[in-house]
């Protein structure tokens, strides 16, 4: 039970959702979209989220479907993490989302909800960052597509009233060698110390991170050093860490020093797996 009231609306179409959003906004009502809706409850009960109105997107047709279309795998923003794991159309994404929360929670959490969430780990975005996916964004003129990297700066930046309707991943990335490693302080459930997702594309490694800083990221500067085969494996990783794009978290999950230690070793494990131990200096 949440400590505040809100109006609730279940649109059947994108246009209906958009229309209702602006109808609420016209009445000066703070309005949010929900997909799985878990964060509204967990943060709302702690008064860390407040809203006057909720628009639940789940009933919009095709919002939750997953299919291949031409050169792309299309994942609906409303696809649950369990569905993504079980359909397994994109193994790197499946493996990454399988480590988020727990199985029953993943029956409710959706991919759009995870990557747009306030809880900053947003691990489902890591495979999307390294495959340069397109986002199908529902806006005033219907659905338009933008590269994720164009609207991602620590978090996805949408304009008011917009929501993520679908995610498009080029087929060429789906079968690439990949690694997804989540390291926690303890146990098999919970937030990460470090999560690393990586692929090898034309002998180049791409890597994205969660749990290191208070936002998920992919860094071209880091990748440039990571792919410098003139260096030893350890030097590649250590020098790349000089280009971390933000402060290293220092919290109850782990000190910044310990996180860096775990990060370094996790990155080395990831590279060894992608390049084959014998090929690593």
């Amino acid at each position: 039970m949440l400590p505040f009231n809100f109006e609730y609306y279940k649109p059947q179409t994108i246009q209906d959702a958009f229309r209702q959003f602006y109808s609420f906004r016209k009445e000066n009502k703070k309005t949010i979209y929900i997909s799985g809706g878990t964060e509204l409850i967990t943060l709302g009960r702690l008064n860390q989220v407040y809203t006057d109105a909720v628009i639940d997107l789940k009933r919009i047709q095709e919002y939750s479907s997953t299919f291949f279309h031409k050169d792309y795998l299309v994942i609906g923003g409303g696809a649950t993490l369990t569905t993504i794991e079980e359909v397994n159309a994109f193994p790197l994404l499946s493996k990454t989302v399988k480590e988020i929360a727990d199985r029953t929670a993943r029956n409710k959490i959706t991919i759009a909800g995870n990557i747009c969430g306030q809880i900053f780990y947003r691990e489902a975005i890591l495979p999307l960052l390294i495959t340069e996916c397109l986002l199908g964004i529902a806006g005033a003129e219907g659905i338009f597509h933008l590269p994720l990297q164009d609207i991602f700066n620590k978090e996805i930046q949408l304009r008011e009233g917009e929501f993520i309707f679908s995610i498009l991943i080029e087929n060429k990335y789906i079968k690439l060698p990949y690694v997804s490693i989540k390291r926690r302080k303890q146990w098999d459930i919970g937030y990460p110390l470090v999560t690393v997702a990586a692929i090898k594309n034309n002998d180049e490694i791409r890597m994205a991170f969660s749990g290191v800083s208070p936002f998920p990221f992919r860094s071209e500067e880091m990748e440039k050093v990571l792919n410098d085969r003139a260096l030893s494996l350890e030097d590649r990783v250590e020098k790349s860490l000089l280009s971390l794009p933000g402060p290293v978290l220092n919290d109850v999950e782990g000190s910044s020093g310990y996180r860096l230690f775990v990060l370094k070793n996790t990155m080395m494990d990831a590279i060894e797996e992608l390049e084959g131990e014998r090929n690593v200096k």
Partner: peptide, 27 residues
């Protein structure tokens, strides 16, 4: 926990396990 962590409130919704503390009744 009322926070989706413990699973004590699990019910089935159309046969799928759901934590009923993480679900609005209207859903």
């Amino acid at each position: 926990c009322l926070n989706g962590d413990c699973g004590a409130c699990t019910v089935l919704v159309d046969g799928t396990p759901m934590k009923s503390c993480l679900m609005l009744a209207v859903e």
